[in-house]
Design a protein around this nucleic acid. Sequence first.
DNA 1: TTGAAAGCGCTAACAG
DNA 2: CTGTTAGCGCTTTCAA
Lengths: 308, 308
Amino acid sequence: MAPATRERVLAAIEELGYMPDLTARSLRLKRTNTITVFVPDIVNPFFGLLLTGAQDEALQAGYDLLIYHTGGHRELERKALQLALSGRADAMIGVPYDLERADLKPLTLRGIPTAMLARASELDPDRTSGIDLVDVPSEAAAVMLVEHLVARGHTRIAIINGRAGTPPQINRENGYRQVLLRHGIPIDEGLIYNGDFDESTGYTRMVEVLARPDRPTAVFAATDSIAIGAMIASREAGVRIPEQIAIGGIDDIPAARLVSPALTTVNQHHDQLGRELVRLVLSRLHDPHPGPGRTVTGRFDLMVREST
Amino acid sequence: MAPATRERVLAAIEELGYMPDLTARSLRLKRTNTITVFVPDIVNPFFGLLLTGAQDEALQAGYDLLIYHTGGHRELERKALQLALSGRADAMIGVPYDLERADLKPLTLRGIPTAMLARASELDPDRTSGIDLVDVPSEAAAVMLVEHLVARGHTRIAIINGRAGTPPQINRENGYRQVLLRHGIPIDEGLIYNGDFDESTGYTRMVEVLARPDRPTAVFAATDSIAIGAMIASREAGVRIPEQIAIGGIDDIPAARLVSPALTTVNQHHDQLGRELVRLVLSRLHDPHPGPGRTVTGRFDLMVREST
DNA sequence: TTGAAAGCGCTAACAG
DNA sequence: CTGTTAGCGCTTTCAA
């Protein structure tokens, strides 16, 4: 092509704002350069950090990350999966709250790289589905925190947990029960509270906890947001932390270090979880061997601070 | 078609997991049934609530909402716009931190419904671009809060603000200056602090504020997250709120009501802002008359609580 | 090196 | 009512 013509074409592109139609390109190439991720709660900083890590990893590999908010509702989780099934995304990652194994089957059948933040035991016990899993250490994190409380001498420990029936709620309660059982501490079902994974639940449930005649000496909050709500309720009631009641959370959100007393919690390295999810699908995108589903277990660390 | 045949086809669909290819459908129909929204900060609860409202509105109208996280970087904001330009979304909404009017021009040229959360004066002073705007009352909200502080008798008021150069930072500082000017209160540039829109900034900047020999009697925090960080720093320093220092924020995030003392703040009705953005593009989607750009001004309310 | 044509999977229009 | 066909905008292949 003559350089002059070339110039004029480029000028016209600029002038008219021409931009290749990605829909047509995708149809032709069977590839969108897009990864879709669904999360149950866009307001929760836990998922915000996970998404930030995931996006960073995706962008570096030349993929766009599109986020779909499900609220943890199965119907919307299924809609998210359909985005990949119908060719709108090359790979699917997400945090399922209400999906069954069967829901994911069509993805693996069609060879769409899929990675979920979930425990194998929930979603795919025998690991034959071919989806990759990042095993979120939800239960182990709970065990670690409650063990810490027991080691501090607590035997009456309440748990303020999130939405009943969701994987994190179930796992954390399981971890809680495990530790008490192991130490021969009787489980008082009245000390088990559920609600949502937010400050407001922490606050209102803590008011109830503090009103008990047989008040516990420690509270295991399922998330730092819950813990912070509980700390506010304690302070208002004039109950000193940790002298009169100890409080521990899970997540290590940025605010955990800032509250006073600083919150003892378990850091789950959210951004790394997001990165790992993206890495898993990227490896299948680059090397389309089907291969069996891999499982990566997230790391976590107990952050002992002042609240316990 | 014979009912039996119909049965068999449906069975085959089920069996093979057939699903129509949305890429092909989109190419044919020139329509994706998708709205894309970009936000500068997915961790900030402000945007979480905005997105929740937006998604609810979009789903009700039969559209999927896909979220793109920009971090407020122009390069990623442009990438988000390209998703709509290249046919991957029917409409574009977003919260620009670093876009110029020229960046949005191609969208209106191609008739893509576009609504931004921004002030007209920033993005489109003479309103000829044809994009719809939700005018976020950032500056007016700042005015309202600082007026409240002045009415309470404060004349030495610090401002702890977010990322320098971003629209909310600029607007809030403008509002702050306006009020002081109006009341003939001299502006001490040393009382103007910037950082990020988060707790950590509130904490570290407040430590500096409290260390001043000429300590102010009130602090205007640009967001509730900043305010909460500042409150924690005050409590640690043994400085009582509001007796020794008053603190007010903007946003009315859920935690604002829970902290103690409860935070005085300005509720911007985030979810409504999100809903309004979606409604604006939906109306153009349903009625493709070009029409001039509309401006909707967000409502806001001063929530006087205990911290001022 | 340049140009023409086929085809990705769908829907709408049209013919039978 | 059913069946066929054209064509959305792109990329790739093949021919000139």
